[in-house]
Design a binder for these strands. Structure first.
Lengths: 200, 200
DNA sequence: ATGAGCATGTAACTGGTTACATGATTTA
DNA sequence: TAAATCATGTAACCAGTTACATGCTCAT
């Protein structure tokens, strides 16, 4: 009845191999970072709750000095829940793109500001593009025969295409902004008396 | 000192023209829907709070029968705050793409499920692509000379490119899935004895 | 010595969604 | 007559972030 609000990602991650909360956070950051994130404030309480529900089970691993590691692994019922979730349609992310929002109001702001936003955005995706390529090489080298690889490559391909597209968009947008600025300058010059002369 | 948590979008929207909370919701849904959203539960309390802070001011519009409309417009200090916000770098959306998450764990689920997810995703972006084209035509026709138009077109271009890219990705991904399934079938047949015969 | 990394966790907060309540008017 | 649209708003809830607390080990 209760519409299950567990962070199913944890089920999926723990299904790959047993992990501690710390491991999970690291794994997400390093491997799913370009389309997912989790914070400790979610992971630890959620793992406990899920253990209480029998979806995962933990075993303790002693360490030297550091706090004991709680290693969580998937139970049969956890796997059932994972299967169920994997079969349900993915809920689409609620759209909230602050860059586009600012750009939409661009006319009310300063042109240089808008240009800077797009340039920063462009730079981010340039570096992301390179990362994707590195990750792809690494994946093939380290996990070339892993049965999960084709799926990992699908998500990576998404990232690659996304960044490539956004680079193109940024370039086109910056070009448009150039034209806007030039047209503006021309008009200003005309109005202030010196030079001028495009189509009306 | 307090890191201003107002929904700056409201400032931007009200800067376009004075609006009521209801108008704002409608405007966002109809015009910014592909990259932004707001719910009444945010809009109404936030407008009141912002009025208290002097960022917007409201005037009452009597109506027949329906509740009076509170029309909000930007104040000078509201505009200052808007300018400030427009100049600050856009905070990037926290990555949370459930489709990719499921796909990443695809190997643990059913192939048909994954295929269905991608097909649904594809269909959505096909219809979105068409919407963008319609909106573009409409924008040129209705607001062909509006000074804000170039910026609106930039955000629209983002949407268009995005959907086009995702259509391509979907197609490529479905093709990969086909190949996977075929390879799987071939292997199964081989194992169960009948036929067979690819490279080792 | 300093800082990064390991490893756990909690509390307070912020942001946002959903469902509800109200009730008239217009359209199918 | 039913449903959609207009128009306001609140309360309860849920998800997620941030900052904090603790303290060891290892590399620079």
């Amino acid at each position: 009845m209760k519409p299950r609000t567990i962070s199913h990602s944890l089920l999926g991650i723990v299904s790959l191999r047993p992990m501690s909360g710390y491991d999970i956070q690291k794994f997400v950051k390093e491997n799913l970072g370009y389309f997912w994130k989790e914070s400790y404030g979610q992971i630890y309480p959620m793992l406990k709750r899920m253990a209480g529900q029998g979806l995962v089970e933990s075993r303790v691993e002693r360490t030297n000095g550091k706090p004991d590691r709680q290693i969580y692994s998937l139970t049969a019922s956890g796997n059932a829940e994972l299967q169920k979730w994997l079969g349900e349609p993915a809920v689409l992310p609620s759209p909230r793109n602050e860059l586009l929002l600012k750009l939409f109001f661009g006319r009310s702001g300063k042109t240089e500001d808008m240009r800077r936003h797009v340039e920063e955005f462009r730079a981010r995706h340039e570096s992301l593009s390179q990362q994707y390529t590195r990750v792809e090489t690494w994946l093939h080298r380290e996990h070339g025969r892993h049965p999960g690889l084709p799926y990992w490559l699908m998500t990576l391909d998404y990232g690659k295409r996304n960044s490539r597209m956004l680079l193109e968009w940024s370039t086109a947008t910056l070009r448009t902004m150039d034209r806007l600025t030039k047209a503006d300058n021309a008009r200003t010059k005309k109005r202030t008396g010196r030079k001028g002369g495009e189509k009306p």
